[in-house]
Amino acid sequence: MAKRRKVSNLLGLAVLSTVSTRPMHPYEMAALMRARGKDRDMNIKWGSLYTVVGNLVKHGFLAVEGSAREGARPERTVYRITEAGLDELADWVRELIAEPEREVPRFEAGLSVLGALGPDEVAGLLRRRLDALERQIAEDEAAMAAAADVPRLFLIEEEYDLAIRRAEVAWVRGFLAEIEDGSLPGLDMWREFHKTGELPPEIAELAERGAPGK
């Protein structure tokens, strides 16, 4: 089970990781995190950066190092990571890597109410999804190939994302084939439901009871 952390926003994790290399001010943190694609790795709301930095300072994970000025720009506070911050960063990473946590993607939410649409429309939407996924995979593979000189350690999250997308493509392709060739169990019932608006009594009972394991 995930720990209750003093700063639980994943932006805090990104900040700690970024500042662990050297002290910097929040504007510099944001620029570096964007350059590293952190907003692709986790759900980041950039508008909360200063609040998150403030909370990290409040709980002793960051400390003020000094201030810096660039040209005529206002003076900016520079922060460094503390020993407590390094401990928190390491502990947080250990938890994220070792402990599986149920995460529900938007696609899964859509699948859970798929019956709201008819099978022919669903097939068309799945074909669109497949096209989009295959384009994304091709772009990511090209980006990975272009970064061949970058140590694998710094691209491991991109490698994982590609593996997940390839697995999704395989699953979607298989499910779509079952709809299109008519082999999907319950397909006739699904079509009939969209014609009549009525479920067979035994299926209606199952729907009322709910799926096992949920």
Rank of each mutant, 00 (worst) to 15 (best):
K38T: 09
P74I: 13
D41P: 02
R80M: 04
A84W: 08
A63E: 09
M42V: 11
V78H: 10
D41W: 03
E88Y: 09
D41A: 07
K45M: 12
F61I: 00
V78E: 09
D91C: 12
Y79E: 10
L49D: 12
K45Q: 08
A72C: 01
R80Y: 02
G60D: 00
F61T: 00
A35Y: 12
V64I: 12
Y79I: 13
L89K: 08
R40W: 04
V52W: 15
E83L: 09
I81V: 14
V57A: 11
E65I: 03
P74Y: 15
G54F: 14
Y50G: 02
L62Y: 14
G60H: 00
G47A: 11
N43G: 07
G60P: 00
L86F: 09
N55V: 00
D91M: 09
A63G: 03
L62R: 04
G54A: 07
G85I: 02
V53A: 05
E65K: 05
S67V: 13
V64M: 06
T77F: 06
A84T: 04
L89A: 01
E70A: 03
G85Q: 02
R80G: 07
R40K: 07
A84R: 11
I44Y: 15
V78N: 10
V57P: 00
T77K: 15
H59S: 01
S48H: 15
G85P: 03
G37P: 09
A35M: 13
D87T: 13
F61A: 04
D87S: 11
R80N: 08
D87F: 11
K58R: 15
V52M: 14
